[in-house]
């Protein structure tokens, strides 16, 4: 008898393997369930990242391709795929454009020879899914005023992913039915001082680019603003009510996208000024302006 008396719990203690495990079992089930839910939630979030970064790119690439094909079709309306529109009628017509239809192409040679996007009319979510969208009511390519374009920075083809890397004098080439318009990024804030003696003189690409005067004084190539500052796309950027007199009116282009990346706290704005315009020569189809080769 003394050997059995271990001083442990009395007889019913021997039943313990039968009863108490049921409670830990239940706790374990609940804890496991919560754990599985958390892991599942993590996988869903990961899947969303994949969707946002890759799947929307694929979808948008398809839509952009369709828009480009449609635009090429309208440009070839001369018949037989040849541009045969006679001289006096070679005038750009932008009125009556429908939301969501492409009307011009943009190239940024600094981003590589393959950087081209068809610009879509309108800035609704649907339009921006197809490509960079033109703010309705702002000027059209080559027109005096401010040709303003918005584009995605994350997913959806992310056309404006890298516009924070644009330097002053980098070319933004816009192609329309009959013309090529060469815009160049304006001097940045820290370059305005001493522009004429500094970069403005040193870089041959900077011909025609200089800090603007008159009502445009203070306008720089890149700025970061609050989402409410819609005046950045005004004809005189930064001054919504102001109008420039006919003599000093500049032909500008403005790009807008979100900033910082993955956030909507601010907007990144790039201003460019038109420095040159080439008319397409019907005798030489496929001819491109020399600015397109500035791919460095």
């Amino acid at each position: 008898m003394t050997t059995l008396d271990t001083g442990g719990p009395p007889a019913d203690g021997l039943l313990s393997p039968e009863d108490p495990p049921r409670r830990p079992e239940r706790v374990r089930t609940v804890v496991r369930g919560i754990g599985e839910l958390l892991i599942t939630a993590g996988l869903v979030v990961l899947l969303f990242v994949v969707y946002e970064v890759y799947v929307t790119d694929l979808v948008s690439a398809g839509k952009q391709r369709d828009a480009t094909a449609a635009l090429d079709d309208t440009w070839k309306d001369g018949g037989g795929g040849v541009d045969t529109v006679p001289g006096p009628e070679r005038v750009e017509r932008f009125n009556g454009l429908n939301e969501g239809s492409g009307f011009a192409k943009m190239y940024i040679p600094a981003f590589g020879a393959d950087y081209d996007f068809t610009i879509i009319e309108g800035t609704t979510e649907k339009s921006l899914e197809i490509g960079p969208g033109h703010y309705r009511g702002t000027a059209y390519p080559g027109e005096p005023g401010n040709f303003a374009v918005a584009g995605h920075r994350v997913g959806k083809g992310a056309p404006f992913n890298d516009i924070d890397l644009l330097n002053s004098c980098d070319a933004i080439v816009v192609e329309t039915h009959y013309s090529w318009f060469i815009y160049r990024v304006l001097p940045k804030g820290d370059e305005v001082q001493g522009w004429a003696a500094g970069k403005g003189a040193a870089d041959p690409r900077c011909q025609g680019v200089a800090p603007l005067g008159g009502p445009y004084a203070g306008l720089v190539g890149q700025e970061i603003v609050r989402p409410t500052q819609g005046e950045v796309i005004a004809p005189v950027p930064g001054k919504s009510g102001a109008a420039a007199s006919a003599g000093e009116r500049a032909t500008l282009m403005t790009l807008t996208t979100c900033h910082p990346r993955f956030s909507d706290r601010q907007r990144l704005i790039v201003h460019a000024v038109m420095v040159k315009q080439w008319a397409k020569d019907p005798a030489k189809p496929g001819e491109t302006p020399p600015e397109l080769k500035e791919t460095s």
Partner: peptide
């Protein structure tokens, strides 16, 4: 869900 998330707003108010 996507339109409700912040990084898709690329336009300024007009």
């Amino acid at each position: 869900v996507e339109p409700k998330l912040p990084f898709n707003q690329v336009t300024t108010q007009q």
